[in-house]
Amino acid sequence: MSTLAFEDVRVRYGTHRSGLTAVDGVELTVPSGSVVGLVGESGSGKSTLARAAVGLAPVTGGRVLLDGTDVRRLPRGRRPVQLVFQDPYSSLDPRMTVGESIAEALPRRAFGGRQAFRDRKARHGEVARLLELVGLDAGRSGALPGELSGGQRQRIALARALAARPEVVIADEITSALDVSVQGSVLNLVRELQRELGLTMLFISHNLAVVRYVSDYVAVLYLGRIVEVGPAERLLADPQHPYTRELVEAAPSAHGSLLAAPDSPVADAEPGDPHRPPAGCRFHPRCPVGPLVEEARSICTTVDPATVAASREHRAACHFAAAVGDTDTPVPNSVVRTGFPSARSDTLE
C-alpha cells in the first residue's frame, strides 16, 4: 500500500526570462489503493505533473513523495511509480517483440519481498502471466507492435508498466488515441486491474466522463494550479469552481445541449496562456461569474484564491465558490495536503 503525494510541486522549464512554469505549487495526494482523476485542458500541466512523478520532468520546487519518501531519493533500480503513455504507437519500440518490451521492465533485483526475475524461464513465465492479465493471448509475446491494433498495444503498455511491480501507476491520457469502440474495453481493463491489484492510480484525461468512470476522486488543474478537488461523483454532479462547472457543461453527452448557453462577455474568451498566467485568480479572464461579468468582484484580479481556499474534503480555489452545502464538513488540515480523510467506499455510495 502506498500513497503518492505532491507537495507544493513546481515544474519550470527554460531559463529565467523565457521560461514556462508548467506546474505551479500543486498539492495533491493520491491515497493508497484509490484512483485520483486529473482533468484539465491542454497547457494545464497535467502531463507535466505525471512526468515529474517519474523523473522525466524536472521538479524545480517542492517534492513528490511516495509513502513519505522523496521519489528522487529512492534506492537505485527501484521503480515503484510507472507511467503509461498516451500514444501506444510511439510508446513501444517498433523493433522489439512485445514480449521483450515487457521483459525489459521486469525487476532484476529483489526488493522488499518483491521477486527478481533473473533467468530466462522465469521471465518468460512472467511475461505470459502479464499478457494474460491484460487480456491477451500469451502466444502474442513474439509479435511486433506493428502487428497489433491500437487497443492491443495499449494493453501491452499496461502490461509493461505492471511488470515493474509498481506501487503507483500513472495513466496519461491512455485512451485518447484509441477509437471509441476500443476505449471502453481498455477502461474496463484498467478498472479491473486496479481493483484486483489494489493499485494506487493517477488517471489523467481531458475527458470528464472517462475520468468519472474510473476515479474515486477528481482534481481539476487550470494553468498549472489545482482549482478543485473532491470525491468524483460529488465534484462532477455539483461542481463548485466556475471552471469545473464550465468543463462539465461543455462535456458532450447525448442528453445535454452544447449549443444552448447564455451569451456572456466571456463566452468566447481564449484559453489561458501558460507563458503569461493572469494575475490574481488565473481563471478570471474567462470566469462567467468573475470580475469581467460582475464588477464588484475585482478581488479576483489581484488576490490568488488558492491561498485562502477553505479546507474541506471537497475544496475549490475560488473566492466565490458556491456553498458546499450539507456535505461541507471542515477537516483540521488541508485535505489536499494530508490526503483524503474518507475511505473510498463512502464516495462510491
Binding site: 471502453g184 466522463a209 468519472r212 468512470y213
Partner: peptide, 22 residues
Amino acid sequence: RALLAVVPDLAADRDRPLGVIA
C-alpha cells in the same frame, strides 16, 4: 446501438463495465 453504448457519459453507471464492440 453499440456506438452509443460504448461511450461513457457523465451519467454512466460506474459499477457496471462499459460496453465494448469486440
